[in-house]
């Protein structure tokens, strides 16, 4: 690397500028962007495709969240019924926008899709406990942030 002492000073100006830029970005930040453009597509098509796992007890909280998200994006919700594995597979491929069901945080699907926080009053639940949640396609960070912010 061959660096002498004064080399440590050189980037100080760059770092301070970067810190100001980042603080500015954070202060007036919009939601992060989705690499696969889920939020943008919903805004354009006015349709949220929800995978509804057969047999999962409905949750009034989940319904309220969906209504708020739909209102915010000017969209309606189209429900697709199916079994857990089938719907999570379709979610992973981007065929549905989110899946509602009762999932444990330690589900074997946890690496392939992203499970949101528990819906309802209880915030603290065990890793193995099956509770109502939305599941999202991995990496669609803006979409995840939008739905999760409405769920809080």
């Amino acid at each position: 690397m061959g660096t002498k002492g004064n080399a440590f000073l050189r980037p100080a100006g760059t770092i301070v500028s970067a810190a100001i830029l980042i603080a500015g970005l954070a202060a007036c930040a919009e939601l992060p962007r989705d690499p696969e453009g889920t939020t943008e597509r919903i805004r354009r098509t006015h349709e949220i495709v929800l995978g509804d796992i057969a047999g999962a007890p409905p949750s009034p909280h989940a319904q309220r969240v969906l209504d708020r998200v739909a209102a915010r994006l000017g969209a309606h919700v189209t429900r697709v019924d199916g079994h857990g594995e089938d719907l999570l597979n379709r979610l992973e491929k981007g065929k549905v926008d989110l899946v509602y069901g009762h999932f444990a945080k330690a589900s074997p699907w946890a690496g392939k899709v992203h499970f949101g926080g528990p819906l309802g009053r209880r915030r603290s639940v065990g890793e193995e406990e099956h509770v109502p949640r939305f599941a999202f396609r991995n990496g669609e960070n803006g979409w995840i942030a939008l739905v999760e912010s409405e769920a809080r």
Partner: peptide
């Protein structure tokens, strides 16, 4: 692999 960075709750506020 698409990294997921979700929001978290900090002092009652949702923060990315």
């Amino acid at each position: 692999e698409h990294p997921t960075v979700a929001p978290v709750e900090v002092f009652g506020h949702s923060v990315w």
